[in-house]
């Protein structure tokens, strides 16, 4: 250090300062954001808040309907998106021989991943709510979300399929199994970690989505009639993120909004944790 010329020493000091200052800014932002949300949100959270609906009569606010709606949307979207996405990834890695077709499909996937959610919201409301006459329902919202999370599932599954050693496939085919049999019994089980991770990331994306659900489902924060499955899909109601927006922007119930934010924060932590856990624990040995 002492032998450096003054200009090099200045360079050293300036870059080191920038490194530490910028990292400190990032860390402080993180700590402040998380701390502030928890500080404002935790006091409002209790069992009643999580398990009841809003009651004008008693003047209490509960987010149970929003939790239910979020779950319905997650389940409905994944039921459709998961087979589609895994199927597409299998086609791309196992079957496709035409380089051009693979490039087109991959380009389409990347394009879908880059489209902002407000455009999905617009197109979803045009296609599902208006053209297909579904109205603003959980079904229309879930179908729009299928398109949105598809790239996430395709990409993670594909990455995972690529890491399955070629010798596994050769061994299976060499023992006389057909291609589909080989995929079902050898390739898919060895890439289960990627598929599960893809699912979890998709759940994260759905939980965090607000624009799509606001324009294809609804902003009503009340409870709907959920007696049959068809009834659920035809009904309509705000998910957690939409409820947060409504309470913050339109009803000025800020403590409720922060409590919902805390719930979302906890969910995000759980989802991230589950994703990294799935990546580690489900990975087959000797892969």
């Amino acid at each position: 250090m002492n032998k450096l010329s003054p200009s090099r020493r200045a360079y050293e000091i300036v870059t080191r300062t920038m490194l530490y200052v910028c990292t400190a800014v990032t860390c402080l932002l993180l700590v402040f954001l998380i701390g502030y949300i928890l500080y404002q949100g935790i006091p409002g959270i209790n069992w009643e808040f999580l398990t009841t609906e809003r009651s004008i009569l008693r003047g209490t606010i509960g987010i149970f309907p929003a939790i239910c709606n979020t779950l319905y949307v997650i389940v409905a979207s994944l039921i459709i998106a998961l087979p589609l996405g895994v199927g597409a990834a299998i086609y791309l890695t196992e079957y496709a021989r035409n380089r051009r077709l693979v490039e087109i499909i991959e380009f389409a996937t990347e394009t879908l991943a880059g489209i902002p959610s407000i455009i999905y919201a617009m197109v979803g409301s045009m296609v599902f709510c208006i053209s297909l006459n579904m109205g603003k329902t959980l079904l229309a919202g879930s179908l729009t979300l299928v398109i949105m999370v598809l790239p996430t599932i395709i990409r993670t599954t594909q990455e995972s399929l690529k890491t399955v050693p070629q010798s596994y496939r050769e061994g299976s085919l060499g023992l006389g199994s057909g291609k589909w049999h080989m995929i079902r019994t050898v390739v898919l089980p060895s890439s289960i970690d990627g598929i599960v991770t893809g699912c979890i990331l998709a759940v994260g994306r759905i939980v965090g989505e607000s624009a799509v659900l606001m324009y294809t489902v609804s902003m009503a924060v009340g409870m709907q009639d959920f007696s049959t499955i068809a009834g659920i899909m035809k009904s309509s109601g705000a998910t957690l993120t939409v409820a947060l927006y409504v309470y913050a922007k339109e009803e000025a119930e800020f403590s409720v909004a922060f409590s919902i934010a805390t719930v979302l924060l906890v969910l995000t932590v759980l989802i991230n944790f589950a994703a990294s856990l799935a990546g580690k624990k489900l990975k087959p040995e000797n892969k």
Partner: peptide, 23 residues
Amino acid sequence: IRTTVNLLAGIPSVVYGLVGMFV
């Protein structure tokens, strides 16, 4: 730091909006 930054990536955008609105 990396884990926390990943958490930041997963936080819904309305939550950022809410904190922005308030702070």
